[in-house]
Amino acid sequence: MNYLSLSDYLKDKYGTKVYKLSLTSGCTCPNRDGTISTGGCIFCSEGGSGDFAAKFMPLNEQITSARKLVDSKIPAKIPLSERKYIAYFQSFTNTYGDQQRLMTLFKEVLSYPEIVGLSIGTRPDCLSDEMIDFLAALNKTKEVWVELGLQTIHEETARFINRGYELSVFEDAYKRLTDAGLKVVVHVILGLPGESESDILETIKYLANLNPTLFGIKLQLLHVLKGTKLADMYEKEPFHIYELEEYCELVGKCLQLLPKETVIHRLTGDGPKKLLIAPLWSGNKKLVMNTMRKYISNL
């Protein structure tokens, strides 16, 4: 089957391959600092789901560091002056804290000519009208995405993983963001403890029927990482973790439910090998992606 990958979307829009620079805004999370909770979501590592992001330092230094990592993987035949990037603020909640500081940061990062867009990971309960208006204004100059960690539509699971907000909060944020003309990317975790395949597909069906149509989705394999509450649970009472073949089948079913115009930003994701407890097969990224592509192409 065919689906619209992020790589294809960006290549079609910008005429070349576009690379992500993982940056850090210096934010924390209301689910960690005591505003909502001190424990965070049970699957979240100390890096705040941004274990591959640059260290927090002046923006120009972060960009230089992130580009060095990314550029080492880009064919030398592509001149430095022709390379394009998306600035990705991934760790923790990137609209939580000093609004003026964050607005200055987001505006500054888009002033770099090689950066063609901005992607901001956040929570739906941390989006003020002021921030949404500001991002909508930025979006008129360069592309802006807002990434929301929904993970599941099921309230029982949401409470279990300590998400800290109800589905209605997501729905309100989605409406306000899309009304402002912003593109929304939703994160979904496949394989949360207690969720059946039917439960997971209900989440996907819900997202497939959003109005307006969902711009992008990240399908994330559940990782058990050292130092998380999920790891403690897994050690005491192991729960089902998908095998590679099972996971490929599930992703295939998800893709068949989603609108063709929804951009697939991620099919699995990968956790840092030094932290990964399960599933260990996910540490072999080349094997995983080759197996998934082969499976999906035969659907």
Rank of each mutant, 00 (worst) to 15 (best):
V144T: 14
T64M: 05
I189D: 02
Y9I: 03
K286N: 05
T122I: 08
V144Y: 10
G191R: 07
K274W: 01
S91P: 14
H223S: 07
E130V: 12
S282F: 08
G181A: 07
T93K: 10
F239P: 07
K218W: 08
V185K: 03
M1C: 09
W145S: 03
D33Q: 02
G149A: 05
I42L: 10
L59M: 14
T268P: 00
K285W: 00
T291A: 15
D133F: 09
E171I: 01
E156T: 14
S72D: 14
S7D: 12
L222K: 04
N162P: 00
D12K: 15
L219R: 03
P30H: 02
G50N: 07
N60K: 15
A158H: 08
M292C: 11
K142L: 08
S65F: 13
E246C: 02
L192I: 06
Y247Q: 11
K142P: 10
W145D: 05
L255I: 15
E245K: 15
K229D: 11
T104H: 14
Y242M: 01
K236F: 03
Q100D: 15
V116T: 03
I132Y: 14
A66C: 03
S37A: 13
L244S: 03
S282T: 12
L4M: 10
E195Y: 00
A208D: 01
L255R: 15
D125L: 14
S65Q: 10
G216C: 06
L177M: 08
T203P: 03
G252E: 15
G269P: 03
I189R: 05
V224E: 09
G269Y: 02
L6W: 11
K55W: 06
M233T: 11
F56T: 04
L287V: 02
N290Q: 15
L6G: 08
S282L: 08
I42C: 06
L225M: 14
L10N: 10
L23V: 00
C27M: 05
S168D: 07
I78M: 13
D179M: 05
F215E: 13
T24R: 01
A173M: 04
L258Y: 07
F239S: 05
K273Y: 00
K55C: 09
K236L: 13
M289T: 13
L23N: 03
T203W: 02
K13V: 12
L221K: 09
Q62C: 04
V263Q: 08
F92S: 11
D51N: 13
C254E: 10
A180F: 09
L80A: 15
Y174V: 03
L244D: 06
A87P: 00
M131F: 03
N31L: 11
Q256V: 12
L138C: 09
S111W: 09
I74F: 12
M131S: 01
P272E: 02
T122H: 10
L190G: 04
L190H: 09
